[in-house]
Amino acid sequence: MALNTPQITPTKKITVRAIGEELPRGDYQRCPQCDMLFSLPEINSHQSAYCPRCQAKIRDGRDWSLTRLAAMAFTMLLLMPFAWGEPLLHIWLLGIRIDANVMQGIWQMTKQGDAITGSMVFFCVIGAPLILVTSIAYLWFGNRLGMNLRPVLLMLERLKEWVMLDIYLVGIGVASIKVQDYAHIQAGVGLFSFVALVILTTVTLSHLNVEELWERFYPQRPATRRDEKLRVCLGCHFTGYPDQRGRCPRCHIPLRLRRRHSLQKCWAALLASIVLLLPANLLPISIIYLNGGRQEDTILSGIMSLASSNIAVAGIVFIASILVPFTKVIVMFTLLLSIHFKCQQGLRTRILLLRMVTWIGRWSMLDLFVISLTMSLINRDQILAFTMGPAAFYFGAAVILTILAVEWLDSRLLWDAHESGNARFDD
């Protein structure tokens, strides 16, 4: 018995066209964080690309023209004298008006014999932002004059995390709450300039795509075929072959399989920071003279006294001054041990922890910024005066060393310790 099946006739004509040209192939790229070699397709503007294995951002879609970056830099340069030299806060102490600005706080630190601690604050609040705007201006002028731009481009990517104007702005709020127990506070004209400078700096850093600047100024022929001998440069993120001198053909720094002496430098910085954190938390970090009496505060006791007036601000200072430094030390110690013992479990967790400490590390400088600003506000000789204690130097040095330890660690070593050939990683 035959089955009668109805015929289905399409209502619209289906047209099949042959592909007349070869589909576009992607360029081969190595991930600078996990060293995976993959094919990167062509990316349009405002599109980002991520590593298929570790999800690290390979290409950032946010990109401004150099002219727009230069305009932002010149605007920031105009704001800087007002943000640093004009009063941020006014207080009335014992019937006398006192003005506080950024430069005055750094000068008070240096004047009291601790120039190293003052230079830490100076670099993060004044030096690094000033280098940022002058570097962008150098790129703008240098591109037109045919100057060598490689050193500036190499420095810009590392400079971003040292620009800490946003953290200093939080420190202004913390210092205001600490001082309000002794005097009446009012915002100064410099505060508005400083807030504007923070906003412009944040926007500029978020749109400063150094890798795209490398592509514009020093374009290189990408690798179009897969080759395990391809290496990625950690300076400019170019994937290719080393030249005859073993250097990256684009930025001219040595092109090595792994960062040289990464573990040794990381261990040295980490152990030194552990040693410095002990006096930083045991010795007094601030000293207040009130009517001839002397009151010393460690980091913890200062947080407890701050909690009596504002528990939320005390929580912020606790996280930045105690929780973050010790968390960074514990995480980095764990990561280094996992590399030495070739741990194969929990790779995803370790990668996330490394990215976390990379982002939060700079916030530990908050305590030094609060001390710097408070020193310029309260300084009335023996009637009422505020000065920093010996722990300030140890704390600042420990924070900087932990930042350097994270920067010096080559994250690809975590993958080397893991089993080879993993296309995915999980716990």
Rank of each mutant, 00 (worst) to 15 (best):
R97L: 03
L159M: 02
P219F: 06
A223R: 08
A307Y: 14
P284W: 07
P10W: 10
F194W: 05
V406L: 14
Q295M: 03
P129S: 03
Q47N: 12
Q220V: 09
A73P: 05
N422S: 09
W267Y: 10
D60Q: 08
E296L: 11
M120A: 03
R355V: 12
L353S: 14
I8T: 08
L377Q: 01
T298N: 08
I8R: 11
L93T: 01
A392W: 05
Q344G: 15
L271G: 07
F194C: 12
V370T: 06
F217W: 04
G346F: 14
L373W: 03
T349I: 14
N148V: 02
L79Q: 12
L306G: 00
R245P: 07
P24Y: 09
P87R: 12
N379V: 02
L278Y: 05
F386E: 00
G188E: 06
Y138Q: 02
G20V: 12
F395T: 01
T134E: 03
L373C: 03
L368Q: 05
V324P: 05
L368H: 04
L208T: 07
A128V: 13
A272N: 01
K265A: 05
G171K: 00
S308N: 07
V102P: 05
A100P: 09
A391S: 12
V163W: 02
L200Y: 15
W267V: 05
I177F: 11
S308K: 14
I19M: 10
I106P: 04
V203T: 14
T15L: 14
V370K: 00
M72L: 08
N379E: 01
G118Q: 09
S364M: 00
H252Q: 03
G246W: 04
A71D: 00
A56P: 00
R59E: 09
R53I: 10
R225A: 12
R424M: 10
W415V: 09
H340Y: 08
N101S: 09
K178Y: 01
V170D: 03
H207G: 15
L23H: 11
Q47H: 12
P10H: 08
V125P: 04
Y182L: 13
L409P: 03
F123T: 01
K57P: 13
R158M: 14
P284K: 04
M72Y: 03
K13T: 09
R226K: 06
M80W: 10
D427S: 13
I383C: 02
E228K: 11
G302I: 09
K229E: 09
T358Y: 09
D297C: 04
H237E: 14
S309T: 08
D381Q: 04
E215H: 09
R259N: 06
T374H: 02
G389R: 04
C236G: 01
A115N: 05
N281P: 02
R30P: 05
I287S: 05
E42P: 10
V102N: 03
A417G: 12
G389H: 00
R25C: 10
W107P: 08
Q220A: 07
I285F: 00
G246E: 03
S321W: 00
M36E: 15
A280G: 06
I400R: 01
D426P: 13
M80L: 07
N281T: 08
F425P: 11
F369I: 03
F425C: 14
V195T: 10
V125H: 06
A175G: 05
W408C: 05
G146E: 02
K265L: 02
F318E: 03
S45R: 13
Q104T: 09
I253C: 03
E407K: 11
L23G: 11
R25E: 13
A272T: 08
W359L: 12
M80S: 10
G240F: 06
V317Q: 00
Y168R: 00
A18M: 11
R221W: 10
D181S: 03
L255V: 02
A183S: 10
V210Q: 15
V357C: 06
E161Y: 05
